[in-house]
Amino acid sequence: MVLVAVLLPNLMLAVVLALGRYEEFMLGVDEGGAEPRRERHLFAVPDLPPVEEAADRDPRPSHASPAPARRHAA
Rank of each mutant, 00 (worst) to 15 (best):
G28H: 04
P59R: 04
P49W: 01
E23T: 15
A18G: 14
L42F: 14
G20R: 06
L42R: 14
L27I: 11
P49V: 00
R57K: 09
P50N: 10
M26W: 13
E39M: 05
R57M: 11
M26A: 12
D56I: 06
A5F: 08
R57P: 00
D56N: 09
G28N: 02
L19I: 07
L7K: 04
L17A: 03
Y22W: 15
M1C: 06
G32L: 14
H72V: 04
E39R: 12
R70L: 01
S62C: 09
A44L: 11
F25E: 12
H72T: 05
H41L: 15
R40I: 15
A67F: 05
R60W: 04
A34L: 12
R21E: 14
V2A: 13
H72L: 07
L11A: 08
D58A: 01
L17T: 04
L19C: 14
D56C: 03
A74M: 11
L3F: 13
L42D: 12
D30I: 10
G28I: 02
R40P: 00
V51P: 00
A5I: 05
A18K: 05
D56E: 10
L8R: 03
D56K: 01
L8F: 01
P61N: 07
A44E: 10
A34Q: 11
L48G: 15
L3Q: 13
P46N: 11
A67V: 01
A44T: 07
A34S: 15
P61C: 07
Y22A: 13
A18Y: 13
P49G: 01
P49E: 06
P50F: 03
L3H: 03
R60Q: 06
R71V: 00
Y22P: 04
L42P: 01
R38E: 12
L48V: 09
R71D: 00
V4L: 03
P68H: 04
P61S: 02
D47Y: 05
F25V: 11
L19G: 08
E52Y: 00
P49T: 06
E23N: 07
N10D: 02
R71E: 03
R40F: 13
R57C: 06
L48M: 14
P36L: 12
L11P: 00
P66W: 00
A34F: 07
R37T: 11
A44N: 05
E35P: 06
P49L: 03
G20E: 02
E53Q: 09
V29N: 07
V51Q: 05
P50K: 06
G20S: 05
P50T: 02
V51E: 05
E53W: 11
H63L: 08
V51A: 09
M26N: 12
L8S: 04
P36M: 11
G32N: 13
V6G: 00
D58E: 01
R60K: 11
L11Q: 09
V4A: 09
